[in-house]
Nucleic acid binder design. Sequence first.
DNA 1: GTACATGCAAACGGTTTGCATATCT
DNA 2: AGATATGCAAACCGTTTGCATGTAC
Lengths: 150, 150
Amino acid sequence: MSKHSGALKELRAKGCRLTPQRLLILEAIAEGSAHMGVDEVFRRARESYPYLDVATVYRTLRLFRELGVVTEVGIADRLHFELTDPAARHHHMVCKVCGSAFDLSPYYLEQFRETLSREFGFEPDLGNFTVTGTCVRCGSRKELRGPIGN
Amino acid sequence: MSKHSGALKELRAKGCRLTPQRLLILEAIAEGSAHMGVDEVFRRARESYPYLDVATVYRTLRLFRELGVVTEVGIADRLHFELTDPAARHHHMVCKVCGSAFDLSPYYLEQFRETLSREFGFEPDLGNFTVTGTCVRCGSRKELRGPIGN
DNA sequence: GTACATGCAAACGGTTTGCATATCT
DNA sequence: AGATATGCAAACCGTTTGCATGTAC
């Protein structure tokens, strides 16, 4: 029972066709690193089927997002997706120096969410939540340059 | 003493030229609404000087950002800027339904920031912080549709 | 057989760049 | 005078779309 068998059921249920391209893209996302860029998904999937077109990847990812199979992640200025996993919902910290993305447990956001909801009636979309900043490594690297290098 | 006199000093100090275009763009940002898109800045500034080119706006905004005169805001998929005001630093909540952006006082983020810093050594870049979600109006509008409309 | 998905190529929109000209200092 | 900023046009890059062909059902 693979990680994405539920996704296949979802496709059938909605009357969508199970094309080889869709399966490839699904596998690419399921097996690839977390929060993948479209180009990354494309490269991976194309390894198994060189005729695959970017347009298909975009269309498929949009379909998957609408079905709830993948989640869009607001990581950079380009689109990123990851397999939706309600049991392990998490968020991201993105280092703007080195570009790395780190997962962040929802635990750290519960209180924040509740506050926004209570005070402003604003329901944060935490499935798509990202904080940018500086990660430990890049932070310490900066310090090594010393106060002179600014 | 206008809101942006400090900015002019900053420009001179860094040896940058005070061209009419730059002044116009600065004024457009200072007088316009918070977190303006590039096109909005462009339209406003061009009202006073129709020959103004978008490229100049982009170049100028980047310069201003590097000088710290404006702050880049990660509001949508396009670039947004606002006049940097250290005394009234704030963040944003963006409604993904209607697109409106609301200011969010740093008060609500202090604790969150401290936690990330302490636990992960991750220094969030809160000058560029944005939560997406659903605002009060769009949230209640959804409810009005009732449980049937899903 | 028919509706839907794909590949291909071309369009699109925001942003950037090369270059000759104009302008600030 | 000399360096730098501008306008213009064209490149760029990620993403989307139109259309004829192909394929899952």
